[in-house]
Structures are given as structure tokens and as C-alpha cells.
């Protein structure tokens, strides 16, 4: 396999050593089928063991390896070096997130938001296991399936200037997941979720940039989830205004 040479400029930030991030260039040869993550691993294993980043599955499903590659949020295990060659590649930590070290961002904020949207099935009454599963037709499944595909990779947050400027914004993935449970025929928890979703940090913060959907590696389409939630929320509100007796 032919080997080509490429330069990678990687963000370094060692909190015990420096006050602000810097950049370090590595030059390396790569075979045609290497992804950016392979190059980082090569550097870590053979050149500089201090380079720090997260990864695990190397098959685009665990959601650990998101980084900015030439300014775009990407899963580095699915970003091929050959697609950037012969230009230099810039690898930075996902933008808008605080940096813990090098390419590792702090995403604890998202975990709080995730919990806040009640990401579980809520029911008034549970059916006993002995009575088997809840029936759900393929069409009912298809209603929410797309929104259940989120791998929590944070690329969409990193593409969202609203999140960048207002970190309180609940953000694309969390809203998409709230939408996923709201659409699930087994769920009755819409009201609990609505309080968070329709709050000032919720859907109305979104100003329709649409980039979240563009960068999502799993085609979750969070922008669609947000817009649909807006429509649904407005319709609910209008209904309750026009027909206050209808809703109890």
C-alpha cells in the first residue's frame, strides 16, 4: 500500500504546564485507509505518549472520538486522511466546550441536560412483565426511531453557535432525545419533559442554524426535532387558549 506524507497540527493543552492551548505539528506517513484517529494513535504509540484524546470503538458507534477536523466537527474514526491529503490537517478539541486536556473536552454539562429531559419511559401504570410487551407497530416505531439513534457524540453542540454563545441552551441532542420519548407510543411523560423543553433555555433558544443536522453522523436530524417540538408546543398553547375547557 502506498504511503503518503501529511502534516497534522494538533491542539495541545497541558493544564499543569501551560495557561492556554498551543499547537503542535506532527509529520507522518499514512497508508490509504487510515482515519484521523489512526494517525493520532500512531503518534501516541510511537512518537509522543503524552498526546491525549478519547476513543474506544473505532467503528463510529461509541461516540467518544469527536474532534474538530479542519474546523468541522467530525468523528475522527470515520474521517479519512486521504480526503484531506495533501493539505495539512488541523485537529482541535470540539469547539464551544471547555478543554480538559489536549483534545479532551468537558461534557459533564450535557449529562446534566440529558438527565433533565427525563430520558426514560414515564407511565402512570406499569404493565406487569408477565403480560408481555407493549404492542407497537412498525409505523409507531418508525415515528421515533430516527431520534433514538443519537450516540451522544456532541458534534451537534459543537456546530451550534447558539450553544456557543448561551451554554445554558439545552441543545440539539437533548431535545432530539426528549422528542424521541415524546413520540414513543409507550410513553406518557410529555408534560414532565415539556417544562424543560419549553423553558427559556429550551427550544425557543434555537434560531434555526440547521448545522446540527448537517454534522450529525447518525442522521438524527435534531433541527427537525426542535422545529417539530416548536410547532407542537405552539399548537398545544393555541388550543389551550382557544379551548380552555378542552384541556384539563
Amino acid at each position: 500500500m502506498s504511503a503518503k506524507k501529511i502534516t497534522m497540527r494538533v491542539t495541545r493543552y497541558r493544564p499543569e504546564q501551560e495557561d492556554a492551548p498551543t499547537e503542535q505539528a506532527y509529520e507522518l506517513e499514512f497508508p490509504d485507509d487510515w482515519v484521523v484517529l489512526d494517525a493520532l494513535n500512531y503518534i501516541k504509540d510511537d512518537v509522543d505518549g503524552t498526546l491525549t484524546f478519547r476513543w474506544s470503538c473505532r467503528m463510529g458507534i461509541c461516540g467518544s472520538c469527536g474532534m474538530m477536523v479542519n474546523g468541522e466537527p467530525k468523528l475522527t474514526c470515520a474521517a479519512f486522511l486521504r480526503d484531506y491529503y495533501p493539505a495539512e490537517i488541523r485537529v482541535e478539541p470540539l469547539q464551544y466546550f471547555p478543554i480538559i486536556r489536549d483534545l479532551v473536552i468537558d461534557m459533564t454539562d450535557f449529562l446534566h441536560k440529558l438527565k433533565a429531559i427525563t430520558p426514560w419511559i414515564v407511565r402512570d401504570e406499569e404493565k406487569p412483565l408477565a403480560e408481555g410487551e407493549y404492542l407497537q407497530t412498525p409505523a409507531q416505531l418508525a415515528d421515533y426511531k430516527q431520534f433514538s439513534m443519537c450516540i451522544n457524540c456532541m458534534l451537534c453542540y459543537s456546530a451550534c453557535p447558539v450553544y456557543g454563545h448561551e451554554p445554558e441552551f439545552i441543545g440539539p441532542a437533548a431535545i432530539a432525545l426528549a422528542h424521541r420519548y415524546n413520540l414513543d407510543s409507550r410513553d406518557e411523560g410529555q408534560e414532565a419533559r415539556q417544562q424543560v423543553i419549553a423553558s427559556s433555555e429550551g427550544i425557543w433558544d434555537c434560531t434555526l442554524v440547521g448545522e446540527c443536522t448537517e454534522v450529525c453522523p447518525k442522521r438524527v436530524d435534531p433541527a427537525m426535532a426542535i422545529q417539530r417540538t416548536k410547532v407542537a408546543t405552539t399548537t398545544e398553547w393555541a388550543k389551550s387558549m382557544l379551548m380552555p375547557w378542552g384541556k384539563q
Binding site: A20, P21, I99, D106, H165
Partner: peptide
């Protein structure tokens, strides 16, 4: 500790979509 990157005022000029 974490490092918070400042967002430059020209952030929206860097990318056609923004």
C-alpha cells in the same frame, strides 16, 4: 481545571454556512 476558549467576534465570517 478546564480551559474556556473565547469565541472571536468574527466567528460567523469563517464559514459560509454561519
Amino acid at each position: 481545571p478546564t480551559y474556556h476558549r473565547p469565541i472571536p467576534a468574527t466567528w460567523w465570517l469563517r464559514d459560509r454556512k454561519y
